[in-house]
Nucleic acid binder design. Structure first.
Lengths: 203, 203
DNA sequence: GACGTAGTTGGACTTGGGTCCAATGTGCCG
DNA sequence: CGGCACATTGGACCCAAGTCCAACTACGTC
């Protein structure tokens, strides 16, 4: 039920920084995984494991933005905290615009980093719960036949069976059957439940 | 229907900057209003007029953050773009975290400012449409009697009239009447419409 | 050709929701 | 006290939705 414990992924090419951060975060009770470059992190981290990442912006090869872009273009999202020694304002603005939780400068204050990590873990948890709901919804939607999907759309839009029949070129009786099967597959009993279920996602 | 044209509010204590920015934004087709300090802006700008604000961070007296906080503590929201000559990374991060559209450094590139303003105006428009929906919803909610509000809650939760009657300690017939009157006042005809209307906001 | 899935429809029936008319009780305000 | 808003309920009735049983058609696979 609880799933694996959240992990803080550290990516920094400076081994001393890595060890210092790991010590700090471990002492605060976090599980920590260390990587010395972007590729290693992207290859080895498991998107299924909850957590956040603390990235050095100035990595050799692919930098922090590269990681951010790589994660954004995939399905796996993970809250990011940037950490940099020589960053400038445009870099920080770019990172924040792209959804970073925080953008900290070295040397970083312990409390600032821990607060950012705490916030990032909260955000990750929310995103995962959101994602679970969405995937559970999509799983149920995938069980519907094409016709049932059409009926679902019109039911959520507030149409009566009679109207749905008209729009789909059939009779009310048929719609009742599709509708009943659809409600079963979606696992809801009332229209209100159905609308709350599907309207929350597509907004 | 269209309302007043969006206005770009400029706040900068340097008159030359103000004039230069006004010229730039006017040439891009924007209405512009200029203020030389925070207090003047907060007192004189009309929250009803759509638009965004471009703020110098280093104002004498109340600074850009002060404006941001003042706006955030009130009901009036307005997308903000920060412009600064001597900002640092923590300042930019703070501004972006607090919801700023962008954080630019002087001297600012024309295209960067115009792009930021364009984005801010889009955001403002979205926020206003959202706000109109919310206020129209609250207006309708305010017409409901206490009992009708309770019924609404339970209807949206997917309860049957019979169950609602049980939970409210009355009989189904009574609920039908409350429910009918409530649906009328809310201006919807089906449960689906009702749920979409109220679940979108508190969701 | 048999079989499964999807879509279709009919009949009969139950339940849920909504409405119109009418009426009662209660608390508050002028 | 009279009027008003609110909550309540009954009866009669209609329409919408859901269900059970049964059947037919089309398409594609084995």
């Amino acid at each position: 039920m609880a799933g694996p414990a959240p992990t803080v992924y550290l990516v920094d090419d400076d081994d001393r920084v890595l060890r210092a951060l790991k010590r700090l975060l471990s002492s605060d009770g976090h599980s920590v995984a260390c990587y010395s470059n972007a590729e290693e992190f992207l290859l080895h981290h498991d998107p299924e494991v909850p957590g956040c990442a603390v990235l050095d912006l100035g990595l050799p090869g692919m930098d922090g933005f590269g990681i951010q872009d790589a994660l954004a273009s995939g399905t796996a999202q993970r809250p990011l905290i940037f950490l940099t020694g020589r960053g400038d304002i445009p870099a920080s603005v770019r990172a924040m615009k792209a959804g970073a939780v925080d953008f900290l400068t070295k040397p970083v204050e312990r409390s600032a980093l821990l607060a950012a990590v705490a916030q990032a873990l909260v955000r990750d948890k929310e995103m995962r719960q959101n994602g679970e709901q969405r995937s559970s919804l999509e799983q149920r939607l995938s069980k519907l036949t094409p016709r049932e999907r059409e009926v679902l759309t019109l039911v959520v839009a507030g149409r009566l069976n009679k109207q749905i029949a008209g729009e789909l070129g059939t009779v009310e009786k048929t719609i009742k059957v599709h509708r009943g099967r659809m409600m079963n597959k979606m696992g809801v009993r009332t229209v209100a439940d159905l609308v709350r279920l599907v309207a929350r996602q597509q907004g």
